[in-house]
Design a protein around this nucleic acid. Structure first.
Lengths: 237, 237, 237, 237
DNA sequence: TATGAATGAGGGTTCATTCAT
DNA sequence: CATGAATGAACCCTCATTCAT
């Protein structure tokens, strides 16, 4: 079902002025962050730039288009960075911690507003918007997921549960942490939260065999020791 | 002549007809679910019931009040059940799985809409609304959190990380699963998802000592066996 | 998604066109006069100007604000004039007559409507409104009251009754004259009414001593004359 | 021009129950007093009596009709009393003071609310209403006016100014005193206010001749005395 | 007779969007 | 280009009044 806003005609994005576009997006991000989509008015955006509402519409066909662009930008920035950085981590665990820390810090530093915008404003409107968000999210998530996927292949991470559940645990946990921040206003400590969270997740993702291996090794040693003991005790005689 | 706006008078919830109240709440739940708060209009709610908007307002003082009631009802229902059922689980692990299954099934069965409503509509609005939501959530979460807390006390669950992080992992993971459903429209399998999720979380929450304990027990046994062996070997003499 | 009413944003009086402002105020004055506050609709004001209601609200944040401005203007105009003119009168009596004539003519010329608006619309509404009216009235009344006050000090006006009673007599009498006009529709003759009213009030305000003094003076003269007569009649002899 | 409220059909005042009618009027007076016409809702009136709105309408065809009745009752009560009492006063001056005291105390004792209702609610609506009010007022004012009229005939009160101006001074002054009370909430002292007011008015109404008369009498006497003196002095010759 | 319930007919207000200049 | 100005289309909410029971 497509829910469309009424009277959404396309404006002829005739004008250009990179500066204008940039400052518009910057201010729009600010306002959308502070107020959320519905409470944001094009008037306020215009006023903060000391330009007219009309000008806003000559750059972006509609309020929604502007908001979409704001969100897209944010995802683009962070996705680019993740694509570059995540693969550099020497192992899954580091990649996981890095991604978590990045995610948390990015959103927390931006403030609860953008955070909320990104986290839940994705249901504002029509299918097109939601599809865009979904797509942005996929790209954003991809680097870490690829890393995890290969770790599943090597057995470093358990693969007897769906990958998407692991994804949900990772991003869900983070987002809940962020919601806590949004609602309470208390900034969580990024470093320790990232460390603890990745630690917990890592534990959860460990293949059952991993702990078993430890046991096995112990057993082997013990058995070895027993063997030694036996031989020694025999030697006593 | 008097010069005042009439707006002041609060709708005195004049009429009462349990049936009406129920059907209103039901339809409101529907519409809020489909459209979200902002895009829902009181007119649409009225029309779906083939009644006038005025009637809606004679039952609920405002759109927000109606929405609050919808959400409150949902929370009340599930909270009551959790308060009754969670304590009956024989151990933390079962409680965890139960709560997860309940949460998932409740929201998935209701459909993505209410799900989204409950998950993210509780934001930004006025303080009153947010406070209500926060309060409902606290009650909702309490039974499981109490269980986990005592498990932390007994050492059954690791307590070297903040409780709220565990909370965030539990509810964050679930909610992310639900968002996936909301966005994709594909219903996840509740049973297996709940099982896997609780398993993973359980693993994550295991105190570092737990695996160690297993080893300890093994060692103890081994050592015991060794002792027996020794004594026997001595007895041989 | 965000869950808030848009209503919050105060109309930012975006547009300005002195012409519009003036014509709006003029028409608003008309309509408020004809209908009174409560029965006036913003729609009617808009329609008389062949503009949209929205435009009205882009100039004045609310119906009340518009009405307040209408009333304020009226008071400002007349207060300014009174402040300039009243002190020029050579004595209290002239000041009194001038103020009365001004008040009557101003309101009668404007028509019964504005008259009623100004006389009684300033009530009950919210505190803000009433405070504004009270303040406007104070300024409006001040010039004459100051004059009277100093006349009380010099004994030209009796000061053995509260000043506010004199104020009530002055303004009450006038307003009742105006109410008569409002209700009957018959315009009173301003000149003679003002003359008669100020005459009556002046008589009422005369210190008790004044008439006595006159008598005393007369007696003195008479006695003097009698003395003269006596001496003359004596001289005859 | 007749301004009518929409949908004003006549209800079939079928029911009767003097008690009901009385209690309805009593409560309506209360509520109209407290809130003014516009802010009063039929619901509130009904609720205070623990009856349904519908019942209200079965006794009074409309809100306005009810309000009219409330006002009419008040005028009737006080008019009847004035008609009985005023003529008993031994002279104009006493009649004046009595009427003023009555008016002030009646309205002040009832509270600012009814006061405001009676004083200015007379512009609420259609011509019919206003006519009723005018008529009620005429009857209310009549006794005192009759007294004054005959005093004008006997020369006890100056008749060189229109009677209605005297009426305006009397009632205008009182009403302004009452407005002061309404706006400030400070109850004026009825006794002293009535005394001072009637004193001032009496002074104002004194025929120019009255003080002059005194002088005249004095002059006459003096002149008489002079004459006597003259004749005597002549007799001397 | 009394009323529970419903509602028609607005009312004020908001804001994204358009367009002539 | 930029914008000042205007507005259409809704939206939430109110309340006197009606009517079947």
């Amino acid at each position: 079902m497509v829910i469309t806003e009424p009277r959404a005609r396309r404006a002829v994005k005739g004008h250009r002025s990179e500066q204008r576009v940039e400052s518009l997006l910057a201010v729009a991000r600010e306002v959308f962050s502070e107020r959320g989509y519905a409470r944001t008015t094009t008037l306020e955006i215009a006023q903060r730039l000391s330009i007219s509402e009309a000008t806003v519409f000559s750059y972006f066909g509609s309020k929604r288009e502007l908001c979409m662009e704001v969100i897209r930008r944010w995802y683009d920035e962070i996705s680019t960075e993740l694509e570059r950085e995540v693969p550099l981590r020497s192992n899954v665990r580091h990649a996981l911690e890095f991604a978590i820390r990045k995610h948390l810090s990015q959103l927390i530093e931006e403030g609860a507003g953008l955070c909320a915008l990104v986290l839940s404003e994705g249901r504002i409107a029509d299918a097109a918007f939601m599809q865009l968000i979904a797509q942005l999210k996929r790209r954003y998530i991809a680097p870490l997921m690829r890393t995890i996927e290969s770790a599943r292949a090597t057995g470093e991470v358990r693969s007897d549960i769906p990958l998407h559940l692991q994804r949900d645990m990772i991003y869900g946990s983070m987002e809940h942490v962020l919601w806590g921040y949004i609602n309470s206003g208390r900034k969580p400590d990024i470093q320790s939260t990232a460390a603890q969270l990745s630690d917990l997740l890592w534990t959860a993702f460990a293949p059952p065999q991993r702990s078993l291996d430890a046991l096995m090794r112990f057993r082997t040693e013990v058995v070895g020791a027993v063997k030694v003991l036996e031989s020694e005790s025999q030697a006593v005689h």
